[in-house]
């Protein structure tokens, strides 16, 4: 996820930093497109298996709270990115940490939801619910790890000066937003439709 170009091999010595940034960006977006398809398949499986049915036992308040936390964490992630891009590493570090904390709270919410669930993974809705939230939570968990890595890199001075040097942080924040976009679709499909 971090700068995928090699500084060791030096084979792309002829590419400018701006060119490398574009390459990294395109690679990351292609990855998003590719990953999005997995989520899209799970989402269509939900309709295929259980249509629009949502059992009344679904915890609506918990779902809304978790959704809000995740959306809010996108704001802090964004703030981290803009800060680092402008060379404001200190603020970037604290915002990355805050985002990771909110992500962890979201994960705790998922665990709680799984334990409270009054439907089994064996029926149509349960199959969709557990696999979709599970796949998404896996991405959130990896996102939290990546955010912490970005913070560590920020402390080590990797993003000093901002600009194109901020790509490592920027890419991770983009991943975080991507996971958020997935939830924008999963939330209504799992909780709201009926």
């Amino acid at each position: 996820m971090t700068a995928a170009h090699s500084t060791v091999h030096g084979a792309e010595g002829h590419a400018s930093p701006a060119r490398l940034l574009r390459m990294n960006r395109m690679g990351l977006w292609l990855f998003f497109a590719s990953d999005a398809l997995v989520f899209a398949l799970l989402l269509s499986a939900r309709f295929y298996l259980d249509g629009l049915h949502t059992p009344p036992e679904v915890k609506q308040i918990l779902g809304l709270v978790m959704t809000s936390i995740l959306l809010l964490s996108s704001l802090t992630a964004y703030r981290a990115e803009t800060a680092i891009e402008h060379g404001n590493i200190a603020r970037g570090r604290s915002m990355l940490l805050l985002t990771a904390v909110m992500g962890s709270v979201f994960l705790a919410g998922v665990v709680m939801e799984w334990m409270l669930a009054e439907f089994s993974p064996g029926d149509g809705y349960g199959t969709a619910f557990f696999s979709m939230t599970g796949m998404h939570a896996g991405h959130v968990a990896s996102g939290v790890l990546l955010l912490l890595m970005a913070r560590r890199q920020a402390s080590a001075g990797k993003f000093d000066g901002g600009g194109t040097r901020a790509w490592g942080a920027s890419g991770i924040v983009m991943y975080w937003h991507f996971v958020d976009v997935v939830w924008v679709f999963f939330y209504p499909v799992l909780y709201l439709i009926h």
Partner: peptide
């Protein structure tokens, strides 16, 4: 890059059915 995930996702669903007891492909669970 755009289609391979489908095979992976299908096999993941089989694994979930086997390991977690979901019922993507088990008629008994819908």
């Amino acid at each position: 890059f755009f289609f391979t995930q489908a095979f992976a996702a299908a096999l993941l669903m089989v694994l979930l059915d086997r390991a977690l007891g979901t019922s993507f492909f088990r008629a008994s669970g819908g």
